[in-house]
């Protein structure tokens, strides 16, 4: 049944995949994200991160202190817009 429950809609990650990943030793949120791919699609985890974190705890994994490391940009941005960024000599 758990192979029919979708956890991450962008990347089609099921509850079953989370269960298998935890059983394979991916017991923290960063490792679980990488092994299953949840949160790496179009919405970048905005819809699934909290749900997957809850399931990780239910499965006996390490309770996450924070969501996984957010990856900019917050929203998808076209390359053509980014190419018009002006060079700021002070920027890091």
């Amino acid at each position: 049944m758990s192979d029919k429950i979708i956890m991450c809609r962008c990347e089609d990650v099921t509850r079953h995949q989370l269960e298998e990943a935890v059983a394979r030793g991916h017991r923290d949120i960063e490792s679980l994200k990488r092994f299953t791919g949840f949160g790496t699609g179009w919405c970048q985890g905005k819809q699934c991160a909290a749900l997957c974190a809850r399931v990780l705890v239910e499965l006996g994994g390490e309770p996450p202190e924070a969501p996984f490391t957010p990856r900019p940009p917050v929203h998808p941005i076209p390359l053509a817009h980014l190419a018009r960024l002006t060079e700021d000599p002070e920027a890091p």
Binding site: Q44, R71, P76, I77, P78, L79, A80, L82, A83
Partner: peptide, 23 residues
């Protein structure tokens, strides 16, 4: 993102409409 986009579009100009999802 600025540095990369400029160089990438000089090399593959048609990619301009593609959106960056994550870095």
């Amino acid at each position: 993102l600025g540095l990369y986009s400029r160089e990438l579009l000089r090399t593959i100009p048609r990619a301009g409409g593609l959106r960056v999802l994550r870095q």
